[in-house]
Amino acid sequence: MNNTDTPRYLSTESNIELDPEGYLVDLSDWSETVAGQLADDEGIELTPEHWEIINLVRSFYARYEMAPAMRPLVKATQRSLGEEKGRSIYLMRLFPGSTAKVVARIAGLPKPTNCL
């Protein structure tokens, strides 16, 4: 659970501050470039399939003011991208690890508070 070795800045040349779990301190720092760097940090190379999910999660947050846990993330994906992609296995393959948290981080959202 402790991640105190995470860098406090996104990269040496940027002044974009991260919290010790790697989430943006100031959510307005987010941009597509920043998303790419955050993804790098997770060992993920962003493809159009990743972007579909990132955009979906950002609009989820814009509407509901909360980052989705896994279950609603699957449901939201199902609704806008169809049954094929709206499955947790698909999302987990795109964003390995704690999928809901990883997506929220790359999409520049606060950490989902109800994750654990």
């Binding site: 989820f60 509407r63 509901y64 003011e65 909360m66 989705p68 846990a69 279950r71 609603p72 449901k75």
Partner: peptide
């Protein structure tokens, strides 16, 4: 102080 309505609207996403 956040509004409650977005959370109420979100409930259906949690089934």
């Amino acid at each position: 102080q956040k509004a409650t309505l977005p959370t109420i609207d979100m409930l259906e996403m949690y089934e």
